[in-house]
Amino acid sequence: MMTQPLLDTLRRLKLTGMHDALAHQLTQPDTYDLPFEDRLGMLLDREVLHRDNRRLDRLLKAAKLRVMACVEDIDYRHPRGLERGRMAPLTSGEWIGQSLNLCITGPTGCGKTWLACALGNQACRQGYSVRYLRVPRLFEQLRIAQGDGSYARLMGQLQKTDLLILDDWGMQKMTAPQRQDLMEVIEDRHGRGSTLIASQLPIEHWHDYIGAATVADAILDRLLHSAHRLTLRGESMRKSAAPQAAEVVDPIVTGQLTKPEPAREG
């Protein structure tokens, strides 16, 4: 059996999943007794899995999420008004497929950023492109892009992103150029992609935050029409997590170093 040329061909064709699966089959004599269709199916399944994993890695890298959070780790026990029934339609990703928006508001420490990143992570797993940006960083990138000639390219990237996460919304009053930039971003994305807003500022104060009544009306009409809303409440989750953090033994002192795990909420 001329297996090495076959393996070389699979690698040359960049069928890495099939290459690895065939190499594994060659070390497992039991697979030789399987019908050809079954062995071929196993190779194809491995190739699909490999490509799905590579795509997920690319999406997560491009998303630049602030924390690695997963929807499976959402803490529903903390009294902040977060219910499984309300989260189910959001974790399904249907709202992103329909280009709807999501507004998460609540006091500091209630888990807005963590929850936004968990939904972003879930969207990547569902095959959507995601981009996380703090609003001040968004305005800074747009300002620089206008100066170096990359504005059109950046706006094109923002428009094509399936889910744009804007964190720290409402931290500072907007300037006139920032209002115009935001209007362009929201207008370009309206009906084409979903925008997730995470903010300490209640929605009823967003109009004053944006300023310039006409522009504010236009932006909020596009953002809030048919948007999902999550209003969190309660004390900071960091307070409940602090006593647990204080009991953690320094791994450097004990010499027990472990691989970092995805951040759990709180």
Rank of each mutant, 00 (worst) to 15 (best):
R80F: 12
L34T: 01
I74S: 03
V71R: 10
A21N: 02
T27C: 00
L56K: 08
H50M: 08
K14V: 00
M42Y: 15
V71E: 05
R84H: 06
A23G: 00
A21L: 04
L44D: 01
E72R: 15
Q25K: 08
M18V: 05
K64Q: 02
L22I: 06
N53D: 14
V71F: 11
R12S: 07
F36W: 08
D45K: 15
L43R: 14
D52K: 05
K64S: 05
L82A: 12
L60S: 07
D30I: 12
L40G: 05
G41N: 11
M68F: 00
L49R: 07
G17K: 01
R51N: 04
D20Y: 02
L43K: 08
N53Y: 07
E83Q: 11
A69W: 11
H50Q: 07
A21H: 08
V48G: 03
R12Y: 09
V71I: 15
E47L: 09
G81T: 00
P35R: 13
E37Y: 15
N53W: 08
L49Y: 10
R55E: 02
Q28E: 04
A88K: 09
A21S: 09
V67G: 09
G41A: 13
H24Q: 12
G17F: 10
R58N: 04
R55T: 06
L59F: 01
L60I: 02
L44V: 14
E72D: 09
Q25P: 06
D20N: 11
Y32K: 12
P29T: 07
H19A: 03
D20E: 11
E37V: 14
L34N: 12
E83P: 04
I74H: 07
V67K: 15
H78M: 12
D20R: 08
A63I: 10
L40E: 01
V48F: 09
G85Y: 04
V71L: 12
L22T: 01
M68R: 15
L15H: 10
L49S: 03
E83D: 06
V71C: 15
F36R: 10
H24R: 09
L65G: 07
D57P: 05
C70T: 11
K64C: 04
L34P: 10
E83W: 11
H19F: 12
T31S: 02
R54I: 07
D38G: 11
A62D: 06
L59K: 01
L56Y: 05
H50R: 05
L26A: 07
R80M: 09
E47P: 03
D45N: 14
L44T: 10
D45W: 03
R55L: 03
H50N: 04
D38F: 06
R86C: 04
N53G: 10
L49W: 04
L26K: 03
D73Y: 13
R84W: 04
T27D: 06
K14M: 01
Q25A: 02
R54V: 07
L26D: 03
M68H: 15
R51S: 08
R80C: 09
V67F: 14
R84E: 01
I74Q: 01
M68L: 14
M18W: 06
H50C: 06
R80V: 00
D45Q: 15
D73P: 14
A63T: 05
P79K: 12
L60A: 06
E37S: 15
A88T: 09
D38I: 13
H50P: 11
